[in-house]
C-alpha cells in the first residue's frame, strides 16, 4: 500500500505494548511496522528503510543494544530511540554511547514518546550520523570529548561536576532545541524529581561560569523564559 507517511519500525517483544502503541502512532500520522525481536528489526530496517526505529532494550534472540550496534556497524544511521528498562544512570549512558538518538524509560506516557519521535525526526539529517552518536562535539572553541568525558574551552580543560557535564552533553546533542528544566532533571537523575527549578538553574549558573557565557549575551546557552534552555551555538560532531 503506497503511503507518504513517515515509517516507524517498532520492536518490542511485549504484545500489549506493541498492540497499543502501534495504533496510537498510526493515529499520530505515522506508518508503523511492528516486530517482536532484534533479528526481525534488523531485517526490516534493511528491507524497508524506515525513517525512525524504536527499540526495546530487553528482547529475545537479539536485544535492543546489540541490534543497534549491528545497525550502526552496517552504516545504517536511521534515527533510533531506545526504550530502556532501568532508570540507572549507567543504562542511559550506555544507550547514548551505542548510538541511540534518544532514550525513554519505561513506563512512559505515549505522548512523551510522540514528542521524542518528533524531536528526533526534526534533528535527523538523513543518512548521516547523528550528534548523539558522535564522540567529539565542537561548538565554536568549546569541545566535548565523550570518550574521555572531557570538556575544553579554547584548549583549556574545564573542571565540571558530573551533573554539569551531563547537562552540557544533553544540550550539545540537542542543539537549537528548547529543553525544559524537567527534561534536564531527568537527564541528570533518570527519575522524576520534585520540580525545584532552582536545582537546574544552579547547575546552569555553574555551567555558564565555567563556559564564561554571559546569560544576557549568550554564545552557548540561551534562557527561554518560562520554558527552559537552548544551546544556540552550531554543533559539529565527529567520529
Amino acid at each position: 500500500m503506497p503511503h507518504n507517511r513517515p515509517t516507524i519500525l517498532l520492536a518490542d517483544d511485549d504484545p500489549t505494548i506493541a498492540d497499543s502503541l502501534a495504533p496510537f502512532l498510526e493515529r499520530a500520522g505515522f506508518h508503523v511496522l511492528v516486530v517482536s525481536d532484534g533479528v526481525g528489526a534488523l531485517e526490516k530496517a534493511q528491507a524497508h528503510r524506515p525513517e525512525l526505529i524504536i527499540l526495546d532494550v530487553l528482547m529475545p534472540r537479539m536485544d535492543g543494544r546489540e541490534t543497534l550496534r549491528r545497525l550502526r556497524k552496517a552504516n545504517l544511521w536511521t534515527p533510533t530511540i531506545l526504550l530502556t528498562q532501568v532508570g540507572a544512570a549507567s543504562e542511559r549512558a550506555l544507550a547514548l554511547e551505542e548510538g541511540a538518538d534518544d532514550y525513554l524509560n519505561k513506563p512512559f506516557d505515549p505522548h512523551e514518546l510522540l514528542a521524542r519521535i518528533r524531536a528526533v525526526l526534526r534533528r535527523a539529517r538523513p543518512g548521516e550520523r547523528s550528534l548523539s552518536a558522535a564522540w567529539l562535539l565542537t561548538a565554536h572553541d568549546l569541545t566535548l570529548d565523550r570518550r574521555a568525558r572531557r570538556v575544553t574551552l579554547s584548549g583549556k580543560t574545564l573542571e565540571l561536576t558530573p551533573k554539569a557535564y551531563a547537562v552540557l552533553e544533553h544540550l550539545m546533542t540537542h542543539p537549537d532545541e528548547a529543553v525544559t528544566r524537567e527534561r534536564l532533571l531527568d537527564v541528570v537523575w533518570g527519575w522524576e524529581y520534585p520540580a525545584g527549578t532552582r536545582t537546574v538553574d544552579t547547575r546552569m549558573a555553574e555551567l555558564r561560569r565555567a563556559l564564561n557565557d554571559d546569560p544576557a549575551e549568550p554564545r552557548f546557552i540561551e534562557t527561554i523564559p518560562g520554558e527552559g534552555y537552548r544551546f544556540i551555538a552550531p554543533v559539529h560532531g565527529e567520529g
Partner: peptide
Amino acid sequence: LLTDLRKLSDLEERTIE
C-alpha cells in the same frame, strides 16, 4: 511506587557529589 523504588535502588549504587 516504581519511581521511588528506582530512586532507592539507584542510590544504592550511585556515588554522591
